[in-house]
Design a protein around this nucleic acid. Structure first.
Lengths: 255, 255
DNA sequence: TCGTTTTTTGACTACTTGTCAAAAACACAC
DNA sequence: GTGTGTTTTTGACAAGTAGTCAAAAAACGA
């Protein structure tokens, strides 16, 4: 076949669509019963295909995990990129990245579980080179975007790096704080008992304290952060906010 | 038997000793191949007991995980308690807790993996009420110790809490930063490529930046932190330091 | 030495991932 | 429609898990 009516044959589209359904179901399974709840047998049964067909899409369980995490990570990179392009001072741009991170975690709450899963077992080793590279590229992109903003801050004289503190130190601090915070929030059911009722705001606040500690100007007290975040959301992430509102409406309806 | 020669019969001691061997082996398995590498069959085979005997000690895999984590957590509580008793200003005492945390992670590096594992699958649900309670008590103890020092700081006027910032907020910040930092350090092999060559020092530095951001006096710049940490280690954790040195010597010899 | 209690065993069930030869579905020429 | 070659789908199969339980073995007490 030299040329095709569409970019894909009917069959190919069908297969693609099935792949999506597999991933969707896998995501649900992981959310419900954790990594252990993900079973190739049950996927095949639920989708009314034989196991062999599922294995034609994903050569092992780990491939599904990696596909899921890559799906999310690509969206995260997109959000980060748009955030870093925010017009303003370096600290405002970093606030935009923070806002995009919050949005990401709210839009794709399942992702926390999946990301946890790939960090535990030796999943990366079993997955294909291709999928591993994809994840690495996404992570590198995120890291680079963040470090870019930090470097800009240094260049603009808003942030002083000296001695032990380097661009990487700041990036690692933010990464630890957000990754740790969201992980705890997702896996510690009794966080409210410990006095944290709004984890997202708590994490946002902690990030700002950390940046203040690094002396990144303007300091939090010199910014109207609520207004800034509101503006960022409005200017950069209007579609995502609408999507989130829709999602919450659906959740409220369901229970 | 109304009274016994020893507190335990010979048989009971034998059983206790075996339980220790099971846990030791399980820990090794988890370190080597992650949660997936832990197999009841293989434990039985390696220890030359039948599976049934292993199941007499631990009714399921999750019980082993929980036993391991409890083992570590009890040691952590002990370290935290001793750290909080350090004589000095509130921030110095918090530095002592930080030092104890560093020590803990170095003495029991396997624990990071185990703690990760119990956070992922629904292990807590499957484990016995007893073991679950034990873990909860340990976590509560750690949290309480940290919050105690923070409260003391507030009472002494070294730290101002107002508005959104409460004692819990500071505690959550430190928890996120250390948990996240050590998790990333343990599971991201390429951290050095990202410019972080000494994760422990990086995490320590970040914690101090965060506390500076909260305005916890004396600020890092007004303290001789290296000297303080050295003093804390010498005064409070001499035995653990020796243990660690021994451990490192062993590691150096092996590889 | 013998009966009783406790401990240990390994075959068993029910599940998992992953493979692969054979069967079914499909595409296409005539 | 019919025949033919290719692709896709299937489900029985191997090899490995967790956990159970009746029966065998060991320990104990008299």
């Amino acid at each position: 076949m030299v040329f095709m009516k569409s970019t894909l044959t009917r069959k190919q589209r069908e297969v693609k669509e099935r792949e999506g359904r597999i991933l969707e179901l896998a995501r649900q399974m992981i959310v419900q019963d954790g990594y252990h709840g993900l079973s190739m047998d049950r996927i095949a049964e639920a989708l009314e295909y034989s196991k062999g067909t599922i294995y034609q899409h994903f050569s092992c369980k780990e491939e599904i995990l990696m596909a899921l995490v890559n799906q999310s990570m690509q969206r995260r990179v997109d959000l980060f990129r748009r955030a870093a392009a925010f017009q303003g001072r370096s600290r405002e741009r970093m606030t935009a990245i923070g806002a995009s991170s919050e949005l990401f975690c709210q839009l794709y709450p399942d992702n926390v579980h999946v990301e946890h899963a790939i960090r535990i077992t030796s999943i990366k080793e079993k997955a294909s080179e291709q999928r591993r590279m994809c994840l690495e590229r996404c992570e590198a992109s995120c890291s680079e975007i963040v470090r870019g903003v930090i470097s800009d801050a240094v260049a603009a004289g808003d942030l002083a790096v000296e001695g032990e503190v380097g661009v990487e130190q700041v990036a690692f601090g933010l990464w630890s704080l957000t990754f740790g915070g969201y992980s705890i929030a997702a896996t510690s059911p009794s966080l409210a008992n410990l006095g944290i009722h709004d984890p997202i705001m708590a994490i946002r606040n902690n990030c700002n304290r950390l940046l203040d500690g690094f002396g990144w100007k303007p300091l939090a007290k010199d910014l109207d952060l609520p207004a800034l975040v509101e503006r960022i959301q409005r200017e950069l992430f209007a579609p995502e906010l609408a999507q989130l509102a829709e999602l919450n409406r659906g959740r409220a309806r369901r229970g």
